[in-house]
Simulated scan of single mutants.
Amino acid sequence: MNTMEAMLASLPDQYRWAADLTSPSLRAATGALVCGMGGSGIAGDVAGDVAAGAPVFVRKGYGIPGWAERLRPLVVAVSYSGNTEETLSGVEAADRAGLAIAAVSSGGALSRLARDHGWPLVEVPGGLQPRAAFGYLTGAVMRILESAGLVGETGLVEAATVTDELLGADLDGPGRRLADDLAEGLAGRITLIVASGSAAAAAYRWKTQINENAKSPAFTTTIPETDHNEIVGWSTLGSAIRRTVGVVALRDTHEPPRVAARFEPTLGRLSEGASLVGEVWAQGEHPLARIASLCVIGDMVSLRLARNAAVDPVPVEAIEVLKRELGET
């Protein structure tokens, strides 16, 4: 088991850690704006998909959107390192606007700011790659939203159970066999992940995990939007695309019936160009558990792709080089 595989094996316990947290004390909020980038920002994407009954938006960039000063959301700043430039920019803008702020971090400048200002802070365990702290970060955001009255039952316990079952002992559970099959079909290909809106965050997690762990291009598309533009683009290059692009569909039994009805014909159109590699169905009842089940298969696929290509999944040299060029820490 390599380093990143060992980090993945801790995922169920990360969800349990978050489930056992003492929730920070927060005033009731009418909505939330989650500020975060990369492996930290994905926690906001997941929370937004889970909190279907409340407005939860995600900011992946500098500052805060113009509407925030008028609508006054709770700002949840998420940065595993605590030093993410864009997220700190958002925190500064939110503070100037007098917005309520809560923070999730393992330390760094964000934790210091939270302590100095008395903002609610969930400090997660450090020492991991940010993308490997997915359970800690997602769980912490869910507990903050719960405390603010924006979500009900968090689903963290079921998420831990579902991921534990899929991973199995020593990462040899049923999810491993599915991931191995998918990775074999995706070898040497650009991955296209197709999902419905309820699985959009999971699809994005697949994309970024394949990008960073397998050092390979991957893209996402969402049904029904795909049917209004993208299917046309896949119909022109024929065999060239079929050799280089592999399609994986993320499915959920809770898909709206009209969306579910679109998958078969849409995948049929896409497979006229790209190669359909397989489908992955969500497991569990709570929305978070279903998203978590899809995400963990994507994690395993990315690690199997890396292993098959003799690539170390841990370093992200291109990101580090770019940070140095920009003078970031």
Rank of each mutant, 00 (worst) to 15 (best):
R243I: 02
R258V: 13
D172R: 11
L113H: 10
L192W: 00
R262A: 09
G107I: 07
E158K: 09
L305G: 02
E225H: 07
P73S: 08
P257G: 06
G149D: 02
R16D: 08
G107A: 11
R189D: 00
I231Q: 04
L8I: 13
A97V: 12
T244D: 02
P65Q: 14
S10E: 15
G36N: 05
L326P: 05
A179G: 07
V75H: 03
D299P: 05
G233E: 10
A94N: 07
L192M: 10
A214K: 00
T138Q: 12
A103R: 00
K207E: 05
G82N: 13
L137F: 08
P256T: 08
A114F: 03
L267M: 14
G61H: 13
R177W: 11
M1Y: 07
I144V: 15
L156K: 04
E85C: 05
A292Y: 04
A274S: 07
D299Q: 14
E86R: 08
P265M: 08
K60N: 12
A18M: 02
S235H: 08
W234V: 03
R251D: 09
A159R: 01
R258K: 09
R59P: 04
S89K: 13
R290P: 02
I190M: 08
T163K: 04
S106L: 09
R112H: 08
G44V: 01
A201P: 11
P315V: 12
E320Y: 09
S40L: 06
E225L: 06
S79N: 09
E285D: 12
D180Q: 15
S302W: 03
E212T: 11
E158M: 06
P313V: 03
A240Q: 13
A160L: 07
S25Y: 01
C295Y: 03
S89M: 13
E85S: 06
V50C: 12
Q209N: 02
A309F: 01
G82S: 12
A109C: 07
E317T: 14
V75Y: 03
G126K: 14
A160F: 07
R115W: 06
T163M: 06
E69L: 08
D180T: 10
E212W: 01
A306F: 09
H254C: 10
K323E: 13
G53D: 15
Y80K: 13
L303K: 04
P55N: 06
D170A: 15
V277P: 00
N2I: 09
L113F: 11
A282W: 02
L270K: 01
G107N: 11
L150G: 10
D172N: 14
G82H: 10
S293L: 04
G66Q: 10
A52P: 08
S271V: 04
G63C: 09
S271A: 15
D13I: 04
V76Y: 04
A306R: 07
T138M: 11
G238A: 14
L326G: 09
A309V: 03
E153K: 14
L99F: 06
G41C: 04
S216Q: 12
R176F: 06
R307I: 00
V151W: 11
Y80G: 05
L250A: 05
L113R: 15
A240H: 10
P174T: 05
W67L: 13
